[in-house]
Amino acid sequence: MSSKLATKKILFISRKAPYGCAMAKECLDALLAASAYEQDLGLLFMGDGVFQLKKEQQPEAGRQKNISATLPVLSMYDIKDIYLQASALAERGLTADDLVIPVKALNNNEICELMGQQDQLLSF
């Protein structure tokens, strides 16, 4: 599509729970769109954003699309750098077993380091 674009490291930071507002979905929409442009993309779930990863979501009753169905597809779009904030997961009483995909858990110092390695941060 736009192979003329230079390659940048862009980290998408998703901080909202999945269905209360559109932000979680719009973050994933933007990320999937970006995957068409051959950029070095990463995704980091922070705060309530970790709820997007939870197994057994049933948003259909609220006439919403299931966000957790999109997450396993990300690797097919070459988005393999997926992280979460370890403290956010623990604070919400969740463990790695509760999640739909394996995600690298980072402590806050590691998150600072990750952010420092990026060309751009897009916060949602």
Partner: peptide, 13 residues
Amino acid sequence: SGLGQLVDACVNS
């Protein structure tokens, strides 16, 4: 326009 314009903004800013 499309979301590609956001990606372009990331690359070119």
